[in-house]
Simulated scan of single mutants.
Amino acid sequence: MKLTSFCQIILFIMLYSSSTFVTSQDSCSSKLQQLQLPIPFDTSSLLCSSVWPAHSFILRYAKASSDVWSFIFSFPLDPKAYAAIGFSKDGSMVGSSAIVGWMPSPGAGGMKYYYLGGKSKDEVIKDRSDLYIMNASFVPATGSLGYLIFQLKTTQPSSNLIFAIGPNGQFPDYPSYDLPKHIDQTSVTIDYSKVFGTQRLHVKSHGVLNILGWGILIIMGAIVARYFREWDPFWFYFHASVQFLGFVLGVIGVISGFVLNNQLHVDVTLHKALGIIIFVLACFQVMALLGRPKKESKVRKYWNLYHHNMGRILIILAVANIFYGIQLGKEGSGWNIGYGIVLAILLTMALTFETQLCSKD
């Protein structure tokens, strides 16, 4: 056998084995690309937890809005058994509301809600739940995986979750859909503060980028352009460099703001509108720089009038939107005081330089 043929066979075996492994179980490092149906909510910010390693149960979750939480619960379909996730007030199974999914054969999957009022068969009530469940579906993946996809309408779900797996080959059957007793179960506690921590980090990153870009560097560049013209051409290159850096950071901040808005789904219409206006004005400034006429040109004075006033409007709107953003983000007085001190220093510098400039005249 030729070496190339041998290598091809080995490569095929490796790829086949890898593919079989990926499709037979889920993990937090896996992407949600094996699903046969679209997911009815954004999955970009889902946190992931291996809630029951013994049975390869994986739970993904995120806060979709102020009162909606998204969940994706995945489990292997081999052995052929139902899988259940329940939300409990105190960590016990009795008194909890469960969502159960199963697929005894390809294309024959099902899902039901149950209220676990007690341990007897009559106390496990189907189609009843203390949860406000939305967009719920059971979705089989391309491999031997099942996904329970749902959203809960609540400010915060119970942190006490229970998971169960049913006996092999026994499923809730039509028409009663009685739930066979599970053969194994576990309980876990979910720390939802991680969700808020991730979102707070995104909010802070958005704020820092915009403060540095629009609220500090752009102002510094304007100060240099107005008061250091005798240092020609150093002032121009410094001004252009600082403004460009501020523009780049500001644009990244604007983009992060749109991403954050899609994640939080909160009403920040005015803040977003001001951010778009600031971005558009900044783009006009960049275009004006590219089309700057020569000093001896007759239209140079009109260009200066446009460029200077457009920059002043941009700075005023940026400062106002930064303070407004700090208020929306509920960052507290520390951010207001911190940026206020930086702004006061920049304003003091500008007033000092303006006084010196006027005394020369």
Rank of each mutant, 00 (worst) to 15 (best):
T4E: 14
T4D: 12
L11P: 05
T23Q: 12
S24C: 07
K31G: 05
Q36Y: 13
L37M: 08
S44H: 12
H55V: 08
F57N: 09
F57H: 15
L59H: 05
W69Y: 11
L77Y: 01
D78E: 11
Y82W: 15
A83W: 04
A83L: 01
A83I: 06
K89I: 09
G91H: 04
S92H: 13
M93S: 15
I99Q: 04
W102N: 01
S105A: 14
L116Q: 00
G118Y: 02
K119Q: 14
S120L: 10
D122M: 09
Y132F: 14
F138H: 13
V139K: 08
A141P: 01
L152A: 01
S159M: 12
S159D: 12
L161N: 04
A164V: 06
G166W: 02
G169H: 06
L179Q: 03
T189F: 12
I190D: 08
D191T: 05
Q199R: 13
H202A: 12
H202T: 02
V208Q: 01
G221N: 00
A222L: 02
A222C: 10
F234P: 04
F238Y: 11
S241D: 04
L245H: 05
S256K: 13
F258Q: 10
N262A: 12
N262T: 09
N262R: 14
I276L: 13
V280N: 06
V280L: 15
L289T: 13
L289H: 10
L290V: 10
S297G: 10
W303H: 05
L305S: 14
H308Y: 13
I313H: 09
W335I: 02
I337L: 10
I337G: 10
G340K: 08
V342I: 15
I345E: 00
L346H: 03
M349E: 05
A350G: 08
L351F: 13
F353N: 07
T355Q: 05
Q356F: 14
